[in-house]
Simulated scan of single mutants.
Amino acid sequence: MDYQNILSEIKEDILYITINREHKLNALNKDTLAELAEAIRLATNNKVIRGVLITGAGEKAFVAGADISEFSNYSIAEGEELARAGQNTVFDAIERCTKPVIAAVNGFALGGGLELAMACHMRIASDNAKLGLPEVSLGLIPGYGGTQRLTQLVGKGKAIEMITTADMITASEAEKIGLVNYVVPQAELIAKAEEILSKIKLRAPLAITGAIKAINASLSHDVDGFDAEIKEFGKCFGTLDFKEGTTAFLEKRKPVFSGK
C-alpha cells in the first residue's frame, strides 16, 4: 500500500510507524486510520516483524485528536458506525496484535491520540507530553475504546475525573497513575522504546505471542483468562523454542530462538 498519511519502515525486525500529518498535529482522519489498519495487518501477518513502534511526526504531537471536520454533521447511526469501524480495524487490532506494540508519545496525545496510545501494549512518553480525553468539551465521549482502556489502566475514579473534566495531564502525572510506563527526555524517546523492543527480541517469539494473548484474555468478559493462560502455556511445549530454551538453560548458554 502506498501510504500518504503515515511513514512505515522495517528496521532490524521492528516496524516503525509514524503518523505523518505534522501540519495537522497528526490528527486522525479516515485515510490515516485506513493506513494504520493496513500497517497493523502487515505487522500481525509478517513473521519477520518482531515488534511495532508507533510515534508522531515532529516534536509537538503524537496525535492531537481526531479530524473533527470529517464527522461534525454525522447522524446517530453514522457516529456509531464511525466508532465501531475504528475500534474493529485499528484500536482493537493493535491491542490484539501478536507482536508487542509500543507508543512513543512525543508531545500531545489527546482524544483519539490518547486512545491510540492506550491501545498499544506499552507507552513511553517524552517529558513534554500532555495527555487527555477532551471529548466532553465537544459534546461527545471517547469512542475508540477510551472509556474502557483508561479505566483498565488507571482505575474508575481517575478515569471518570479525566474524562468528565476534560483536563490534560503531564507526562510525569501519567507515569504516576500508571498511564505510561516511562517518561524520558524527548531526544531519548525512540531509543527507550527500542531498548525495550531489543530485550523482547531476545526472547522466544511464540512465547511472546502466547503471553500477549493470555494477558488480553484477562480483560475479556467472554473468555476465562486462566483457561486461556493454561492453553497458551500448553502450546509452548510443542515448540522448538521451548526445547531450545530449556536445553540452553541446562547447558548454561544463551538460547537462540527460531520462532518455531
Rank of each mutant, 00 (worst) to 15 (best):
I160G: 05
E161S: 11
I163T: 01
T164D: 08
A166Y: 05
D167Q: 11
I169N: 02
A171E: 06
A174T: 03
E175H: 11
K176F: 10
K176D: 14
I177V: 15
V180L: 05
V180I: 11
N181Y: 11
N181K: 12
Y182L: 14
P185M: 10
Q186M: 12
Q186L: 09
E188I: 03
L189W: 05
L189M: 09
K192M: 15
E194Y: 05
E195C: 09
E195K: 12
S198L: 08
I200N: 04
K201T: 10
K201H: 12
L202W: 04
A204W: 03
A204M: 09
A204F: 09
L206F: 07
A207D: 12
A207Y: 09
A207Q: 11
T209I: 09
G210D: 02
A211I: 10
A211N: 07
K213P: 02
K213Y: 04
A214N: 03
I215G: 02
N216K: 11
N216E: 11
S218A: 10
L219H: 12
H221S: 14
V223W: 01
G225C: 04
E229H: 10
E232M: 11
E232S: 05
E232P: 02
G234I: 10
G234H: 14
F237L: 15
G238C: 10
D241N: 10
